[in-house]
């Protein structure tokens, strides 16, 4: 995987952890969101590994990366769409993308639950400070 993407992913991950440790419950929700992004990017980016010993991005794909949908627009093909049979190894791994697609949608569900919990906690305990919540127990 590209080192800079990896750096971005780990930065976002660390930032997410830092936010989850925050006292403010809204910041925790934001932290969850950022960590989710980090994980998703990591998985998607690992889908363009090519199974070599040292993971690298295949140069041929890399050439097109200046264009977003630049794979073969003339014949209406956008990666990872294929036509007929071709050298299968050229494509980014579609399975990781399918999994992340599910993950994105589910992360929306978790965000919704967390947010309604925040709403409810604020309504009931009149605070967004998790430390105060802990003291209210019992």
């Amino acid at each position: 995987m590209n080192f800079f993407i990896a750096l971005l992913v780990s930065f976002l991950f660390g930032l997410g952890i830092y936010l989850i440790l925050n006292r403010d419950i809204m910041k925790i929700a934001i932290g969850f969101g950022i960590m989710g992004h980090a994980t998703n990017i990591f998985i998607v980016a690992s889908g363009i590994l090519q199974g070599e010993f040292v993971p690298i991005i295949i140069t041929k794909i890399n050439e097109y990366t200046t264009f977003i949908f630049g794979d073969d627009l003339a014949s209406g093909i956008i990666a990872p769409i294929i036509e007929g049979t071709s050298e299968a190894g050229m494509y980014a791994d579609p399975l990781t993308q399918a999994l992340v697609l599910t993950a994105i949608v589910i992360s929306f569900a978790t965000t919704a639950v967390i947010l309604t919990l925040i709403y409810h906690i604020d309504k009931e305990f009149e605070t967004t400070d998790v430390n105060k919540l802990g003291r209210m127990k019992g």
Binding site: V9, S10, F11, G14, L19, A38, L49, F53, P55, L95
Partner: peptide
């Protein structure tokens, strides 16, 4: 946060250490 992020970076970079499995895609 920094330690977690850094560990994560190491993990990502270490994916090359182990023999990669053949993707079944």
């Amino acid at each position: 946060g920094f330690i977690s992020g850094f560990s994560f970076l190491l993990v990502i970079m270490a994916t090359g250490i182990v023999e990669p499995f053949v993707p079944f895609s």
